[in-house]
Amino acid sequence: MVKSAMIAMPEVPVARTAEDNTRLERMFATHHATVWRILRRRGLSRDAAADATQEAFIIAVERLHEVQSGDERSFLIRTALQVARTLGRKSQRWHLEDDMDQRGLEGRNTEQRRSDIELCDLALSKVDPELAEIFVLFELEELSSPEIASLLEIPLGTVASRLRRAREEFRNVFARIERTMHHEEQP
């Protein structure tokens, strides 16, 4: 297992063999949405998350030979988290879309889903970032606790306690938002 993915952006992707290309394509096909989602949950806009996803994959290209078969997802997630950290908190804001007033033009389901996602991101933005990281990996990306422990290189017990606190914080914040919504719904 590759222990850490240092951020060192190449100017251009390095030359690859046909075998490397095939492997990269498979990795992209399987994991790009996961990487993009994890970056989105760090508060990045859709575009910014795409840029950061690209960075994570470029790093993967550079270090393709260090990534063991079967460890691709862990490597990419770990790299994505490091990319997010290097971007710094200032660029990681809960992001309300600029086209909110266009929602009525979209389909009902699309509009609802986007609102749901924004609500989730709003609640997550108020959870301690260290806890939110565990929450996203477990609740949204469905990694197991042992997988998270291995990926973040922390004890299993720490994962369990952080997850418990993360769930508690998320539910508390969400419940407050929900009560506000319910209250405003009343005449």
Binding site: P13, F28, A29, R40, A49, F57, D116, C120
Partner: peptide, 28 residues
Amino acid sequence: VLAATAEEEPSPELRDRMAGALGVSAAA
């Protein structure tokens, strides 16, 4: 809300942009 967030995907345009920058083929 959690289910919707877990299922969020990049738009086809964003996906194509990422793939193009990485030299990933249309088949992928």
